[in-house]
Every structure is written in structure tokens, then in C-alpha cells.
Computed example of a mutant assay.
Amino acid sequence: MSLNVGVLSIQGDVHENIMSAKTAIDELGIDCKVSAVRTSEEISQLDGLIIPGGESTTIGQLSLVNGSLKVLKEKIENGMPVLGICAGMIMLSNNASDRVVGKIDQPLLNILDIKLERNSFGRQKESFESDISLDSINIKKFNAVFIRAPSVSDVGSDVEILSKFNDRIVAVKKGNVIGTAFHPELTEDVSLHKYFINLVNSFKN
């Protein structure tokens, strides 16, 4: 049975995530198609979704306007695997503030019980790369690209910490939901995308 994975295409690194997912699928040899999705109708047909990095306020507001936020929340709560990257992790959270402006008013999905700070490592010019480990999902070394990245300062009891950088939490997991502060689609290493595709495959089968 073919899997159907979508990349939310409202704004952000859509093409890069589609290419990374396709490479991961080819390496895994799984029957799966990946496409850009935007509407609630498209999202309702998915087996898994990547919410890419970008501007989380914009993505959230536009998702609210086109009605996809409600469908997306229902799908996730019914078990659909989701990978939220940078802005995507912010959207999945239930508590987000900005390092400079404080509490922010933006639509959140309230899926991950985490306390999150936007732009935690600085603005665009402070972007950087660093090797991290995600040992609990068998990724020993990963070249993480941080661009205006958030960090997580606190997690609920049902949220697993996957990785830290300089004592700041940069990747979390709750069942079918993964959130990363860094951009796995901006490196040639597709191990995190492979892990996600395997998660979708397990959910479907």
C-alpha cells in the first residue's frame, strides 16, 4: 500500500523537504509519494506531514484562514506522524514566546506540551551549524543547521527530549510527533527524514 506524505506548502523550505523525503524514501525502498499540500482536503488524505521551517506566525495565520489548522490537529490527534521543523515545532507547541518581544500572539496547535522560545540563538546573522546526537532514535551524529532557531526550556511529562545543544533542548518527540529546532532538510544527511518515513510506514501498517 502506497504511503502519502505531504509537506505543508504555505511558506518555508518546502522544496528542500520534498527532496530530502524523496531521497529518504528511495534509500528505504518504501512505496511512498511526497507532495506539497496546502488545503484541508489535501491534508485529510495524508499518512504523514512535514511542517517546514519558515515564519511560524505567517504559516499559522494562513493555515487558520484556509481551514487546514483544524483538520491538521484532528489528524495528529488520531495518530498521523508529523515532523515539525523550526517554525513547524513552534506551531506544534502549546507555549511560545520570543526572546526579544516576549509572549507572541499566533495560532498554535497545542500538540506538544513544551515551553519554547523563538529566535533563542539569535537572528539570521547568528545562524550556525553544529554536530549533535539523537541517540534515542539511533542517530549518533547529525550536522544540525540552526537558522533563527527556537529552543525548548521545559517539557511536559509525556514529551521525550531527543537532543540538546549547549544544554538547550533542540529536538523533542511525543509519540507520533517530532519537533526540531534545526533544519534537517539543509544537510545531505537524510537520516532524520528516514526515521520519520519509517514512523509513517509503521503508522499506516
Rank of each mutant, 00 (worst) to 15 (best):
G84L: 09
I85A: 00
C86T: 07
G88H: 10
L92H: 04
L92M: 11
L92I: 09
S93Y: 13
S93I: 11
S93A: 15
N94I: 09
N95F: 15
S97E: 14
D98E: 09
D98M: 05
R99D: 10
R99A: 15
R99T: 15
R99H: 14
V100A: 05
V101K: 13
G102Q: 07
G102R: 03
K103W: 10
K103D: 11
K103H: 13
I104H: 08
I104W: 11
I104N: 07
I104S: 06
D105H: 14
Q106A: 15
Q106D: 04
P107H: 02
L109T: 05
N110V: 06
N110R: 07
N110H: 11
N110I: 05
I111P: 01
I111T: 07
L112N: 10
D113H: 09
D113W: 09
I114D: 03
I114G: 01
K115C: 11
K115Q: 14
E117W: 10
E117Q: 15
R118D: 08
R118N: 03
N119H: 10
S120V: 06
S120Y: 14
S120T: 10
F121H: 05
F121T: 01
F121K: 00
R123C: 12
Q124H: 09
K125P: 00
K125R: 14
E126P: 08
F128I: 07
E129A: 13
S130E: 14
S130A: 15
D131G: 07
D131W: 12
D131F: 15
I132D: 00
L134H: 02
L134D: 06
L134W: 02
D135V: 08
N138W: 09
N138I: 07
I139V: 08
I139E: 04
K141P: 03
K141D: 11
N143T: 12
N143R: 12
A144N: 00
A144L: 00
V145I: 15
I147M: 12
I147K: 05
R148H: 05
R148E: 08
A149K: 02
P150N: 10
P150W: 07
S151D: 12
S153W: 08
D154W: 05
D154Y: 13
V155Q: 11
V155K: 02
G156A: 11
G156K: 12
G156C: 13
S157A: 13
D158S: 15
V159G: 10
I161L: 10
L162W: 02
L162Q: 03
L162Y: 08
S163H: 03
K164A: 08
N166C: 04
D167L: 05
R168W: 00
R168E: 14
A171G: 06
A171D: 03
A171R: 00
V172C: 09
K173N: 12
K174I: 09
G175M: 12
N176P: 08
N176G: 11
N176E: 14
T180I: 07
F182A: 02
F182W: 01
F182C: 01
F182K: 01
H183S: 01
H183K: 03
H183R: 02
H183Q: 08
P184M: 04
P184Q: 04
E185H: 02
E188V: 11
E188A: 13
S191G: 02
L192T: 05
Y195W: 14
